[in-house]
């Protein structure tokens, strides 16, 4: 490498600008790929972007903390985006209030099931406690799930990847599974996938039926809240 190119690289690798552009660029490409495959669940934009950025970091021998210095500006927006979930929730308040009883019961039962089933299976594989903590909020939307893991002393990066994988798994599974169970109530189908697979599941539900999508969005918001409240308690019972 010539001196000039070297100094250019030293400059670029030290400013947030480069990694901000790489993050946005990877997302734009991944989103186009996802569109080209008609939003096929296997073509998840987050999954594609992470692989792309990961390869760039590996090829340039850039450490994650250096990358995050730039990407943290995007990361920061997760907080306001979580707050903004109140907007669709408020918009759908009438439909929500009409189905309030089945929703509340399914919410609590489903939320506890998601935590207990994941942690129990992982325990069978003999995983250490920090990994179990990081796995427990896997059905919750990422900003909240990572917040829960952070508060309980788990590994937020691992939680982020497990949440993403849960979203992809649920989106692939939900339609064939619900058809096999002969479930025709779109509210229930949507609610289940929003609860189990948060935003990625919600996006999938909207592709299938608008009412399912609405209820998936509600389930995602409510499950974030209930899991944040219940998880420390449920985990204490499971791990002690």
């Amino acid at each position: 490498m010539s001196d000039q190119a070297f100094f250019l690289w030293v400059y670029l690798s030290q400013t947030p600008l480069l990694w901000l552009v790489v993050t946005l660029g990877a997302y734009v490409v991944a989103d186009r790929v996802s569109q080209a495959f008609r939003r096929h669940p296997l073509c998840n934009p987050v999954l594609i972007s992470v692989v792309a950025v990961g390869l760039v970091l590996w090829a340039t021998r850039t450490s994650y903390p250096v990358y995050f210095e730039g990407a943290k500006f995007v990361h920061f927006l997760l907080g306001p985006a979580t707050v903004a979930l109140a907007v669709p929730l408020y918009e759908n308040r009438r439909v929500v209030l009409r189905a309030i009883v089945p929703m509340v019961v399914a919410l609590v039962v489903g939320s506890v099931t998601a935590i207990v089933s994941a942690v129990s299976v992982a325990k069978l594989f003999g995983m250490p406690t920090p990994i179990l903590i990081s796995l427990a909020p896997k059905s919750v939307t990422a900003p909240v799930g990572m917040g829960i893991t952070e508060a309980l002393g788990g590994d937020t990066a691992l939680t982020a990847i497990l949440i993403m994988l849960t979203g992809v798994v649920g989106s692939i599974m939900v339609t064939p599974l619900m058809n096999a169970l002969r479930m025709k109530d779109w509210r229930a189908r949507g609610f289940a996938v929003g609860l189990a697979s948060h935003g990625i599941g919600t996006a999938r539900a909207f592709q299938v039926h608008s009412l399912a999508g609405t209820f998936a969005g509600i389930a995602m918001g409510l499950n974030a809240l209930v899991t944040a409240l219940l998880l420390p308690l449920v985990l204490k019972l499971l791990l002690d």
Binding site: Y64, A71, V74, L78, A142, A157
Partner: peptide
Amino acid sequence: SLLFIPASV
């Protein structure tokens, strides 16, 4: 989806 990338990386 974009907002999940930095943490997921």
